[in-house]
Amino acid sequence: MVTTDEKGPLTAKKKSVIIRSCDGDEFLVSESAAVLSTSLKKILEEKEDRLIHLSDIDNKTLAMVIAYLSTHADDGLSDDLKRSFDQEFVSGKEFDVLKYLVLATDTLQVTCLCYTVAKKMADIMKNKLVEWVRREFDIQNDYTPEAEAEIRRLDAWAWDDRQLEDD
């Protein structure tokens, strides 16, 4: 199924691409928006196919990314408006949602979106504990206790005000 908004029939006349999420939903996107993603641009250059299947991005995340790409491809919007859109885009989003977004930008290679999402993730990370970061970033602590103690000793200054401190 192809979903478009009311402007669908009009925009369909323009060069556009259909992108399918891993759960089968399809989105009609203008080519000018799609090529803001380095990966999509490469795919479009390599083959004529107007249907791109993304096996590791779900529909919710893809809808957000496409909304972002379409806004940034809109020549009618000033840079200031795009900047405030960016802020609005990540404000209030849970870390879980940002996780999907950052993974999607890593796959799709969208530099400006990666910047915006990474900034928001860094803001959330700032006051978190080591265990929180390990859990949220899916990090297995593979240090031996001795090795970890050694690092703590060498760069003791980096933990002296209890930021990123252990639980």
Binding site: M1, T3, K14, D25, N59, I66, D75, K99
Partner: peptide, 23 residues
Amino acid sequence: MEKTKPCASRKRLKQNPPLVDRL
């Protein structure tokens, strides 16, 4: 340029697929 506003599927309301934490 006209804006292409995508919107999520109206037909199916899906859950995210079971999340393997891939960060």
